[in-house]
């Protein structure tokens, strides 16, 4: 394993009526070869903006990358020209979106859409490109792949469309796949099929996957490592086992406890009070402080740093004080 993608101090903002509003406030993380990294958080936490920043697809939004580096295979993507970046997109890094109906072109046959990518990046043409497209469709488990090449997206079901999306995105054998909520719009039985498929592809090709999702069940199932975002920041980062067995940040713990678990027989679910703060009304100290049940004086005054400890990190005064004072402050419930 080696570092495939390294994001350093990425800051992204949105132009609003009240000036520049920073929505990603300096995040750092990496994705290694052959690793599935989960990026989780609630709506508005900045996970999709992070993925669009990596792909540099913010042109259609009021967003702009303010600062930082996105190092892909040793090269800073932010320094590349748009022409060069276009060669990378779809070829080196590619992206699957949530809604397969809106991300496929409705008036173009499926075969043509896949061949377009292939001929652009792989220097294949005619019969060869067509053969490659059919074999890609077959590899993602699409029956009658040859016929499907001549059909339009609306003729397929949601699950089939998402398979077509995946076939298209892996057709040029990218090293990094960004999957933005790829199963959220699908039924649970189809979701299971797509997750199995992604896992199989990842094992076969050793690509790195950045999996953006709000569903912790999906994370537990497929990811190796997890990054939890809140209000445009990373608040915790750890392996999937550590996150679920021993979450350090109260937000992570709250998220996990909020999910109804089958067979738990609880009368009342745990719930985090309040809601995510808006970028206009960010609390001064820790951004989670107003919703946190362990809040201390310092939390309202100063924002904790993302402190690294034993290979995992957490942005919380509780764990940081704890490590300084050797467990004087309890992490009680």
């Amino acid at each position: 394993m080696g570092s495939l993608l390294q994001v350093n101090n990425l800051k992204t903002g949105f132009h609003t009526e009240d000036g520049m509003q920073t929505v990603i406030t300096g995040i750092d993380f990496e994705v290694n070869h052959g690793e599935i990294v989960g990026l989780v958080g609630e709506s508005g936490s900045g996970k999709s903006v992070t993925s669009l920043s990596i792909m540099q697809l913010l042109h259609d939004t009021p967003g702009e990358i303010i600062d930082g580096e996105i190092i892909y295979k040793g090269e800073d993507l932010l320094k590349l020209s748009e022409k060069k970046m276009r060669q990378y997109r779809g070829n080196e890094l590619s992206m699957i979106f949530q809604e397969p109906m809106t991300s496929l072109n409705p008036v173009m046959k499926i075969g043509k859409q896949i061949i377009e990518t292939i001929s652009l990046h792989l220097n294949m043409s005619g019969q060869k490109a067509k053969q490659h497209a059919v074999s890609m469709l077959e590899s993602v488990g699409i029956p009658r792949a040859k016929d499907i090449m001549n059909e339009y997206p609306h003729q397929l079901s949601g699950g089939m469309r998402q398979r077509v999306m995946i076939a298209m995105q892996i057709s040029c054998n990218p090293s990094l796949l960004i999957a933005d909520e790829p199963t959220t719009a699908l039924d649970v039985t189809i979701q299971a099929q797509i997750l199995d498929l992604l896992k199989d592809i990842q094992e076969k090709t050793n690509m790195g996957i950045l999996m953006i999702t709000h569903d912790l069940g999906v994370v537990a199932e497929i990811c190796d490592r997890v990054i939890v975002m809140y209000a445009g920041r990373i608040v915790e980062q750890a392996t999937v086992k550590e996150i679920f067995n021993n979450p350090k940040h109260p937000y992570t713990k709250g998220l996990i406890d909020s999910i109804p678990k089958i067979g738990a027989g609880l009368d009342e679910l745990y719930s985090i009070p309040g809601a995510v703060p808006s970028p206009k009304n960010m609390p001064k100290g820790c951004k989670f402080a107003p919703r946190c049940e362990h809040v201390m004086d310092i939390c309202n005054l100063e924002e904790p740093a993302l402190a690294m400890e034993n290979g995992r990190s957490s942005r919380c005064w509780l764990t940081q004080e704890q490590s300084q004072q050797e467990g004087v402050v309890g992490h009680g419930q």
């Binding site: 299971a192 099929q193 199995d196 086992k241 089958i262």
Partner: peptide, 25 residues
């Protein structure tokens, strides 16, 4: 049975049995 088996469990130590349903509705 297969619906229940398809639910991703928020617990990495539980391995989902892969009797995920073939095909679609």
């Amino acid at each position: 049975k297969s619906l229940l088996a398809s639910i991703p469990q928020p617990d990495p130590s539980v391995k989902r049995e892969r009797i995920s349903l073939k095909g679609e509705i």
